[in-house]
Structure formats: C-alpha cells, structure tokens
Design a protein around this nucleic acid. Structure first.
Length: 210
DNA sequence: ACATTAAGTGATT
DNA sequence: AATCACTTAATGT
C-alpha cells in the first residue's frame, strides 16, 4: 500500500501526511462495473484514487441518468468532502469504469488534516476546482452541443480515459449515459461510421479520428 | 434449431 | 431528437 500511495501522492502530500494516511486508510480494489457509491448512500470514507477510473453519474427520481465526469489516478471525489463533514448523503453515483484501486480514509480525519497539513488543504481546494471545471464542461456539452457532437465527444473522452481506442460498450449503454434513446445513438453512430470517425462492431466501437 | 440480445431502419410526431 | 414498430444480425443454449 505504501508503494502504491507513494507512486502518485508522494508528490502532493508531505511525508507525515502519507504516514497518517497509511495508518488509517484502507486499500480497496474495485472491479470494473462495480458500484463504489450510490445516490443516497451515507458517506463515511473519502476515496483517494490510485488507479483505474470511476464514472460519476447523476440520477434523478425517474432513473434518468447523466454522466458528469470521471475520477482518475490522483483524484478524489471532492463533493464527498462536504457531504462527509455535514453527514449528508451522496447525490451522485460512482461506478468503476475499469478495475480500480483506491485508499479510503475515514471522514473524521478530513477536518483534522485540513488544519494540520497545507498539502491536504491544497489537495481539497484543487480537487474542488478541477471538479467544477469538469462540471462546467459537462453543462456546456449539454447546453450547446447537439446530440451527434455530444456522442462523439463522449466517445473520444472515454477512449482517453480507458487509454484504448476500442471501447466495449453497447448502444444502449451509451444512450443511458447521454440520457437519450438507443435508436438515436444507433443512427448517429452509423453516421459517424460513414464519416470514417469510428468503426462499429457488436458490443464494440473503434474510435479512429480524434 | 431456437431463444435472446444487439443493432439497423422507415415512418411519424 | 424521440418513439413506435419492425427487421436483421450475432451469440448463447
């Protein structure tokens, strides 16, 4: 666990903080497709992502969902900090997009470290800033882009996060993530294929041009 | 061979 | 861009 933590976090956290994290943190493996946090869940721990990627989704009462952003190595769910401190429930759902690892830190430490460690304060604030920027991007995409552009952006973003140009996903899953219907996705994907931007297979999409 | 699931398509709103 | 209704293709049993 030390090696894994050092790997990324040693550059952001001072050694004493790393020691504290090692003392109270627990390392967890999250397999692809596994639920890390669901809407309404009580937050008792804060994740520090070591590897992999977590997809953060907002879901409404009807079950309609929309993908907001991804967490990657070195990220944390900044939103969860406030939730933790005020003992609120999660308003998001986090699903592992691929096999991931994270160190979970109990919430009691969050506030302690805020006053004790400068690097922790920076980490939290930076993380908040980053999430905000990603949210703005998500809103822009929703408000200004048409479905075809949104879809292509989603595919290229996902290809970057998965570090692979072949995505194993169905049209239905894409439709769910973008909050549209499968038929629409199928049609737009066909069009993108004709434009030679992607290549379609069953349960698989190759992103060619990005 | 048959059932199931994923993907493609025309027509309509 | 969404929905319906239907077809076709791929895959599992």
């Amino acid at each position: 666990m030390r090696a894994k933590l050092d790997d990324y976090f040693s550059v952001v956290f001072e050694p004493e903080l790393i020691e504290e994290i090692l003392k109270v943190g627990t390392l967890k493996q999250i397999k692809a497709g596994e639920l890390m946090i669901d809407v309404g869940d009580e937050l008792t721990q804060v994740p520090l992502l070591i590897s992999g990627a977590i997809k953060i989704i907002r879901e409404d009462a009807k079950g309609d969902e929309i993908v907001l952003y991804y967490l990657e190595r070195g990220d944390t769910c900044a939103i969860s900090f406030i939730n933790c401190v005020h003992h609120r429930k999660s308003i998001f759902r986090g699903i592992a997009e691929k096999d991931s690892e994270a160190v979970f830190v109990p919430i009691e430490k969050i506030e302690d470290w805020m006053v004790k460690y400068k690097s922790w304060r920076h980490f939290v604030v930076d993380s908040y800033h980053l999430r905000l920027l990603e949210m703005v991007e998500a809103i822009e995409s929703l408000a200004f882009l048409q479905m075809d552009d949104r879809l292509f952006k989603y595919l290229t973003d996902k290809a970057k996060i998965m570090r692979s140009t072949t995505l194993n996903t169905t049209h239905q899953e894409l439709a769910d993530d973008l909050n549209t219907s499968r038929v629409v996705v199928s049609r737009l994907l066909k069009q993108l294929e004709r434009e030679k931007k992607i290549k379609l297979h069953r349960n698989k999409i190759e992103v060619i041009d990005f």
